[in-house]
Design a protein around this nucleic acid. Structure first.
Length: 286
DNA sequence: CGTTTTTGACCAGCGC
DNA sequence: GCGCTGGTCAAAAACG
């Protein structure tokens, strides 16, 4: 596993860091993290081929976009159907009193730490110990695979999760967590999916100081012995179940911690990285 | 019957 | 200003 400090990774994403298409995300994470080889000996597969840098304005493949359906004849049906509360209200009233639930859209979305990892698996939604409710699905530009949006079922918990399959490698699932859980896992099954494993790895990284952070730009030289690729052993106890599950894992994280970003060469505040992303200090096991 | 998923629409941000 | 896209909402459907 490798964790990546994504420079300027404020939330919400700016356009260029929003990973509007999975290729961009793949490029970033893939290059950054590399693949964990099946051998689990710390050997790593070559980094992913970076997809051609797609210009921001490139619209090819937009046919996959769901926006094409938005303008369809279904709209009038929907309007006639009702959508009485929120939609109609929002449509008729320009702005003044934000409808409940819509307030988040008015203000700039709050920044949340993000934690993404890539999993080579056929399973789209990996078990990670938390319960999630799906609240949306969108077709992604330049990708034949849709992106699913999940929210933690704990109503006090604002953590969200995006799951999408890589367009470059359909066997790779990209999972992006946003926010911090304010509660314990519902279940934390031993030897469950790779997502659970990733969480465990995050914890292990914290406890064993195995994580190596680096600044993203430095990661884009696949030939170098990047510190990221030498993530020490990734704790064999963690890799073992991974191996058993026959799932290859990539992990990357982007956080909003400027402190780490500002010290690319060193090993900055390693402990705080992933764990801080995922679990508030009060929740950590001493 | 309660919970979750599906799905079409709406909205904001961004680039042109 | 317009169009595109990602993210979210919420009613309906599906599921247990």
């Amino acid at each position: 596993m490798a964790a990546v400090e994504c420079g300027g990774g404020d939330w919400p994403f700016s356009a260029e860091e929003a990973y509007a298409d999975s290729s961009a995300l793949l490029a970033e994470i893939g290059w950054a993290a590399g693949f964990v080889d099946d051998a689990c000996a710390g050997e790593l597969l070559p980094p992913l081929d970076p997809p051609p840098a797609t210009p921001t304005g490139s619209m090819e493949g937009a046919g996959a976009s769901s926006s094409s359906t938005d303008d369809g004849a279904t709209r009038e049906a929907a309007d006639a159907d009702g959508r009485p509360a929120a939609a109609t209200e929002a449509a008729s009233k320009p702005a003044p009193a934000p409808a409940p639930g819509k307030t988040m859209k008015k203000q700039k979305r709050a920044r949340h730490p993000r934690f993404a990892f890539m999993t080579k698996t056929e399973i789209d939604h990996l078990e990670d110990g938390y319960r999630w409710r799906k609240y949306g699905q969108k077709a992604v530009k330049n990708s034949p695979f849709p992106r699913s949006y999940y929210r933690c079922t704990n109503n006090k918990c604002t953590v969200k999760k995006r799951v999408e399959r890589s367009s470059d490698d359909p066997s790779v699932v990209i999972t992006t967590y946003e926010g911090q859980h304010c509660h314990h896992t519902v279940t934390f099954p031993r030897g469950a999916g790779a997502a659970t494993l990733a969480s465990q790895m995050a914890f292990s990284a914290h406890h064993h100081h195995h994580l190596v952070y680096n600044d993203l730009p430095a990661l884009h030289s696949p030939t170098t012995q990047n510190p990221l690729f030498s993530v020490p052993a990734m704790s064999s106890s963690l890799l073992q179940p991974l191996h058993c599950n026959r799932q290859e894992l990539q992990v990357a994280s982007y956080t909003t911690q400027a402190s780490s970003i500002s010290s690319p060469g060193s090993v900055p505040a390693v402990d705080k990285g992933l764990l801080d992303d995922m679990v508030p200090p009060a929740m950590r096991h001493g």
